[in-house]
C-alpha cells in the first residue's frame, strides 16, 4: 500500500516537474511549482517526517508561491524566447542528474536500522529526551534544545536573508517603497539604468514606469 502511494506521488511529481519545464506561461509554472511542493510535502508525510512536511507545505507551497507571484507581477507573465540554444544547459543538467543518481547508489537503504544515522546520537535523543527534556515531540527537543546552536544559526540566516533582500530591493528601479523611513530617497540616481531593463520586461507596467521615469528625470535635473 505504501509502495503504491509512493509510486503515485512520485509519478505525479515527475509529471508536474515536466509540465513546469514545458510551460511557457510563468503564472502557470508558479502554480505548478506550488503543486510540486505540496506533493513533496505529501511524500515527507509518507516517510513519517511530518515536521518537514509541515514546513514544506507552509514555506514551499505557501509563502514562496506568493513571493514568486509578486515577482511575476513585476516582470510579466510570459517567458521570453530563449536567446541561447538549449543543448549545453540540457547536457549540464543531465550530467548533474546522472551524478546525483550515481551518488544515491551509496546511500544506505531507507529506514534500515543499521544506518549510520541511527547509531550516533539518535538513540540517546530517542531514549533520554523524555527524561532530559520532558517533551513528547523529540523533533522539538532536538531542534530547540540538543541542537539549539543550529536553530539559532538558522534563525540568524533567515534574518540575514531579509537584510540581503531589503538591500537588493532598495537599489531597485522604483523608489518610494521605503519612503516612509526616508531610506530609498538618497539612491535615486542609480535607478535609471535598472529601470530601463525593468521596462522591457514588465510589459504590463510600461506606462506607469515611464511616467515615473519622467518624474524621476525631472527631480534629478
Amino acid at each position: 500500500m505504501v509502495e503504491f502511494v509512493d509510486i503515485a506521488l512520485l509519478v505525479l511529481l515527475g509529471i508536474t516537474a515536466f509540465s513546469i519545464i514545458r510551460q511557457k506561461n510563468l503564472f502557470a509554472a508558479v502554480m505548478m511549482a506550488g503543486i510540486y511542493s505540496l506533493l513533496s510535502a505529501a511524500l515527507f508525510v509518507v516517510m513519517d517526517a511530518v515536521d518537514v512536511a509541515f514546513t514544506e507545505a507552509a514555506v514551499g507551497a505557501g509563502i514562496s508561491t506568493i513571493l514568486m507571484l509578486g515577482t511575476l507581477a513585476l516582470v510579466g507573465h510570459n517567458e521570453h524566447q530563449p536567446q541561447h540554444r538549449p543543448i549545453l544547459p540540457l547536457f549540464v543538467v543531465i550530467l548533474t542528474g546522472a551524478v546525483l543518481v550515481y551518488g544515491t547508489l551509496d546511500i544506505p537503504p531507507f529506514g534500515d536500522a543499521a544506518n549510520p544515522a541511527h547509531h550516533h546520537v539518535a538513540p540517546h535523543y530517542l531514549e533520554e529526551s523524555e527524561h532530559e527534556i520532558g517533551i513528547p515531540n523529540v523533533v522539538t527537543s532536538v531542534l530547540a534544545s540538543y541542537r539549539g546552536y543550529d536553530t539559532m544559526g538558522e534563525t540568524t540566516v533567515i534574518f540575514a536573508a531579509l537584510v540581503g533582500v531589503l538591500l537588493l530591493l532598495s537599489l531597485g528601479p522604483r523608489p518610494g517603497r521605503l519612503a516612509s523611513n526616508g531610506r530609498a530617497t538618497t539612491i535615486r540616481d542609480r535607478d535609471k539604468p535598472v529601470s530601463k531593463e525593468g521596462m522591457e520586461e514588465a510589459q504590463g507596467d510600461t506606462l506607469q514606469v515611464s511616467d515615473e521615469e519622467n518624474t524621476l528625470g525631472d527631480t534629478n535635473g
Binding site: 509578486g70 533567515i158 522604483r174 523608489p175 517603497r177
Partner: peptide
C-alpha cells in the same frame, strides 16, 4: 517564540518589499 517572531517578521517584510515595488506612489 524567538524563531516565531523572526520568521514572521522576515516573511511579512519580504512580502512588503516585493509587493511594494509594483506600485507607483
Amino acid at each position: 517564540l524567538g524563531v516565531l517572531i523572526t520568521v514572521f517578521g522576515v516573511m511579512v517584510a519580504v512580502f512588503y518589499a516585493f509587493a511594494g515595488r509594483g506600485r507607483v506612489d
